[in-house]
Amino acid sequence: MQERKILDAVEGGERIGREEALALLLAGELLSLGRAADRIRSRLHPENLVSFVVDRNVNYTNICESKCSFCAFYRDQSADDAYVLSQDTILTKIAELVDQGGTQLLMQGGLNPALKIGFFEEMFREIKRSFPGIQNHSLSPAEITCIATASELSLDETLVRLKKAGLDSVPGGGAEILVDEVRGSISPNKIGWRKWGEVMLKAAGLGMPTTATMMFGSSERPQDIVEHLFRIRELQDAGGSFTAFIPWTYQPGNTELGGVTATGVEYLKVLALSRIVLDNVANIQASWVTQGDKMAQVALFFGANDLGGTMLEENVVAAAGCSFRMSREEMISLIQQAGFRAAQRTTTYQILREF
């Protein structure tokens, strides 16, 4: 009875609180949550479009001092397979993206204190000069904080200089769970949740679009998942510029943390709750990269209206043994088979082409 009352309120446009959200996560019936989330998606996106972006993840370095226990990608600087990509290699990768009609570059790497702001300014200027039509959607809040510290600059100075050099928007990587007790157990050397939020609000203040993510299924409690969602909602209320929210599941392969990943049912429940709670974030992405194509289709009926990027290249999740791949044609087919119209978009959700 309580569940129906909460969902009726949500579908009527009311906001729910933490206790109500936790009740839905713990005791809510999966299909009831899915139906409510789907109705919200339909209300926010009545055109029946499911969008995607043609992009490439370029991991410019795998050297990282954070050494998160859930990560299989990072390497110590002394490791035989540690690397920093040359500017020529990065530009070649971007050229391949442009040749395939791509519009979004997502550059992310480890927290490598040897790479100071000059490295990024030089690289970003050259990217903007060579590929003016590409959206440079790069660097997580943790990376930006690392660059600021290594360069002995304030966050404000760092963001202003990166934007001037060609950084267009900031992805929400490194959020994991925005609860410091969880962060302290799985990524003790990474910034806390308040610093993550501070970077995002400062980027928004400079007019930069951002996104938000959540990695769940590692060691957090249901209460922590709910807290994460409400902290995203509150950051958005405080002036955030989140264009989308992307929940994805921890992948345990090859990691120090180990364990098992969340089930498909758990993923869909969290996805639906995300759509229900985040009434001020327009788009919810399904994570086909961690869930695969069939579950991504199901996610379109649990609140998701976007399938993220085609990802010409992805290395971080792949390092944990999860290597789903999808071409633009496969993405279009997947959307259409689910009964939706497929549309290619920009990073900021402008529709470029419908199929």
Rank of each mutant, 00 (worst) to 15 (best):
G239A: 09
E313W: 04
L206V: 02
A148P: 04
T261H: 02
G133F: 00
R353A: 15
R194M: 13
G192V: 13
L30Q: 05
K202W: 05
L105P: 07
A79Q: 03
L115R: 14
T149L: 11
E266V: 06
Y267E: 08
V281C: 05
F230P: 06
T310L: 04
T149E: 14
M208I: 06
D279W: 04
I90P: 08
A272R: 04
A238N: 10
L162H: 12
S51L: 06
P188S: 09
A79L: 00
L159K: 12
G258S: 03
G110E: 15
L162K: 10
M214S: 05
L268K: 03
D180C: 03
L201H: 06
D55Q: 08
S86H: 11
P46W: 08
C68I: 11
I246Q: 04
A318W: 12
Q77K: 15
G264R: 06
I144A: 08
Q108W: 11
A72W: 11
K195V: 12
A36D: 02
A9D: 15
V199S: 09
C68S: 08
I40H: 14
E198I: 01
W248C: 06
Q77D: 14
I134R: 04
T263F: 03
E256L: 08
L49A: 02
M200N: 14
I284T: 10
L30A: 11
E96N: 14
I191E: 14
G174S: 03
E11Q: 12
T243Y: 09
R75G: 06
K190C: 03
Q251P: 00
R125A: 10
P247Q: 07
E96S: 13
L24Y: 06
S78R: 13
S185Q: 15
E14S: 15
I186V: 13
L201V: 00
E143K: 09
P209V: 03
I127W: 05
A272V: 03
W193K: 11
E330A: 13
Q291S: 07
I232H: 00
V277R: 12
L334W: 00
Q291G: 01
A114E: 13
W196Q: 13
P222R: 07
Q2I: 14
M215G: 01
L105R: 05
V199M: 11
E181C: 00
E220N: 09
V53Y: 11
L235W: 14
E220A: 12
E20F: 06
E198V: 04
C146P: 01
A95M: 04
V316I: 15
W196S: 13
L307Y: 01
V179D: 14
R194N: 11
N283W: 11
I16E: 02
I276D: 01
G109V: 04
E157T: 01
F73A: 00
G192L: 12
V54C: 07
P113K: 02
S185A: 14
C146N: 15
A148M: 00
D306I: 04
R125W: 06
V226R: 10
G173M: 08
I6Y: 07
E65Y: 12
Q350P: 00
T89C: 05
